[in-house]
Nucleic acid binder design. Sequence first.
DNA 1: GCGGATCAC
DNA 2: TATGGTGATCCGC
Length: 644
Amino acid sequence: MAAERDSDVRAPQAVSSDGAVYETATGRAEAHYYHFSHDKAGMGSVDKAKVAAVVHSMSEGSSFYRNEERRDARIQQQIEGMRRRWQALREGGLELEGAAATARRERAAMETRRRLDRVWVVVDMDMFFAAVEMRDKPELRDQPMAVGGTGMLSTANYAARKFGVRSAMPGFIALKLCPSLVIVRPNYDKYKAAAKLAKQVFRRFDPQCVALSLDEAYLDVTDAVSRKLGGLPAAEMAAFHEAVWDVVAAIRRDVSVATGGLTCSAGAAPNAMLAKIASDMNKPDGQCLVPFDAGSILGFVGALPLRKLPGIGRVSETQLGGLGLRVVADVRDEAARLHCVLSPRMATWLHRVSLGIAESGRSGSEAGAQYRRKSISLERTFRDEGSLAALQATVAKLASKLSLQMQGSKAAAEAGSSGADGRQAEAGRAGSEAGAAEDDGVQAARPPRGHVPGFFGMADSDSDSDDAGRPKVRPAMRGRTVTVKLKLASFKVLQRSATLAEPTNSAEVISAACKRLVAQESERFKAAHGGRPLVLRLLGVKMHGLVFDDDVDEEERAAAGHMCKLDDGSDEDDGADGGSPERADSAVVGQGRRPVLRAVLDERLRQMRRHSQQSQQQHPAKRARRQPGGSSGQRSLSGFVSIS
DNA sequence: GCGGATCAC
DNA sequence: TATGGTGATCCGC
Ligand SMILES: Nc1ccn([C@H]2C[C@H](O)[C@@H](COP(=O)(O)OP(=O)(O)OP(=O)(O)O)O2)c(=O)n1
Ligand SMILES: [Mg+2]
């Protein structure tokens, strides 16, 4: 693996060499009570131990903390099992030999599929929400600041990050870490407007660019780079890299101009996964290019802490860490063993990404199906509540509101702005690649396919038209399965669902189903806990098994005369009128119109999860099952780890 | 189809 | 005073 350096890139800081970037980033799994990673932009100089101590002191003894402890204990137990299996593997043993053969076969097939002929760029705005606030209020500029409330922060500026303040951190803890912190309430409309301006820039470089969230976009700039090179193939790699570099710099400059000074960072690479990782390497206001040759790529990904891989989060990192694996090269070296311990899917996925290979397909020619969401939901946190009547009133309200959203633009518009309740209404996200629906397997040959991330994001909300000027429409939909989510005062989460005979979007029907599910769970809880009431802190309602009114078969459409169209939509989504037949979730290429970029990040959130894992489950009307395996009592002294 | 779990933003 | 909301995937039943 030579060549992992960036010597061929014009700007010297393009790809910081592996060592330089991660020298301080080797943080391994830390105790659960300190779960804010500092391996992030702006976190270079925090006193981790001190921050951990403060966070711990603020959390200790709370219900939240106890729940984290339970969770941590479970994870540690799983790791134990995994580790035993790992160590039981014998060098010349049958199982390991077989797995080794599989891994070799896999690697050969994967290398075959490595593509270096597309140029992907991922752009990620710097401290996005905070940056917008700072742009609009100069007095916040040189001041530690965060966006959110005392309960929860969305993000923080770099001055605040120096104190350890982070996204998803409770505001009251942040204030302890940084008493001078100013917390600003979010203004989503402003963020959406800024995102829209940025997207207009992205479109100039890739008309099909895809936004995965308000502040992150994926672009295939292959054509833009070609143009820059005058349509000729680059004579030398250095010239090609330079062209890529310049295109990325131009994008970033234009974004800054268009948004009134917001900065962003970007990564450029042969696939979207690598570009995404690279986008984080020179934050803020920087860019990073991963050289377009296999050797450099292997060197680049190999040195990354596993956590850097999109799809590897806190739990997965801890689990792999339990096997002694810390950086990507470790899992590459242990591909065979991992096949014996992880699910085949997970093992194969890890192996592939450890080689820096991802299928970042552009739908381009293959007319894309239009993206369809697979579920729609609302949830809300409230003060502990134990009255069944009150809880049912709450779910009913959520159900009604959800029903309204499911009626499409027209109904939603008529209902007026439901804004009052201080919803958090933004967020939203979209999955990425195919997977479940269509294998996305591992097999070598299959043509790239998959569906698209839907957006929410960059689509502006305060406009009635999309960027091409067409009226935006939110299609009406119905769902067949209704799920209620219950978070107990203890923070334990339960879901209970029911599948109806027919898809619906009726407030009454959804409401009734929700109330019944909540009542049932309430009963069950009382029965199991000596009459104590079920006390909740959150309720949610989700519908899935969706069918869209503008998706029904021709006959049905003619018969029903449906077609909820027109009318303003207040936000989100990408219009695209009807046309596609078939079930909504069939994501198969259909004939939807309007090609959409697909599968940008072919790595959707993969799960860590070994074969057996599992365990618990208990519950309902069932016999309480026995815990398998020994050591039920055992505790996992979670006092473990800590500090860095 | 269900329920738990993980992940991203 | 007191740890968010939305959407998606995966696993094992
Ligand atoms: N758990 C989270 C993570 C993020 N966000 C929001 C606020 C962020 O501003 C925005 C973008 O997320 P990023 O992860 O890109 O974080 P930032 O853009 O704030 O900072 P960075 O400069 O590290 O990209 O999404 C959120 O609400 N909740
Ligand atoms: Mg960002």
